[in-house]
């Protein structure tokens, strides 16, 4: 973000009239950049929460039962031994990239950083019920994605 600030300053250097010191001017730009950043983040979170329910509908029908095409399929029984951690890691990374930002952050914090759920909620400033919806959704998606990318019984 600091780099962005300098770039923006360079681009707009004609607009700088010398009414305030250079230092203050740079800080002003930085401040605006930070505000923009968090505004963007916040609006993303709001929309993502709306999309949550819709996303879960991919897996379940109206009555909450698995849709046939998205239900769990049998996995190869020897995946346990065959999945060396490097392969699994590559697949997982791919799958994680397909998740929405907020779900991905929750998933990584809970399962990879092994943080406590309370802590995650606090850090991300989300309610625990929203948090669990996010975890639920990301787990469903990750499971589905892993299945499609190598865990399935051929």
């Amino acid at each position: 973000m600091v780099q962005d600030t300098f770039l923006a300053a360079l681009r707009n250097s004609e607009a700088f009239k010398g009414e305030i010191s250079e230092k203050n001017w740079l800080f002003l730009i930085l401040k605006n950049k930070i505000i923009d950043h968090y505004k963007k983040k916040a609006s993303k979170i709001v929309t993502s929460l709306h999309e949550l329910e819709k996303d879960i509908e991919d897996f379940f029908d109206d009555s909450g039962h698995w849709k046939k095409e998205h239900g769990p399929q049998l996995w190869n029984s020897d995946t346990e031994s065959a999945t060396n951690t490097n392969d699994f890691r590559m697949i997982l990374e791919n799958c994680l990239n397909r998740l929405q930002e907020l779900s991905r952050i929750c998933f990584v914090m809970k399962y990879l950083d092994e943080k406590e759920s309370d802590e995650i909620c606090k850090e991300l400033q989300i309610t625990s019920s929203n948090y669990w919806v996010l975890i639920h959704r990301s787990k469903l998606k990750i499971r589905n994605c892993l299945e499609k990318n190598g865990m399935k019984n051929n």
């Binding site: 879960i56 379940f60 909450g64 698995w66 669990w132």
Partner: peptide
């Protein structure tokens, strides 16, 4: 429902 069951499992 299955939706609820998977949620509870987690």
């Amino acid at each position: 429902s299955c939706k609820e069951a998977t949620f509870r499992l987690l």
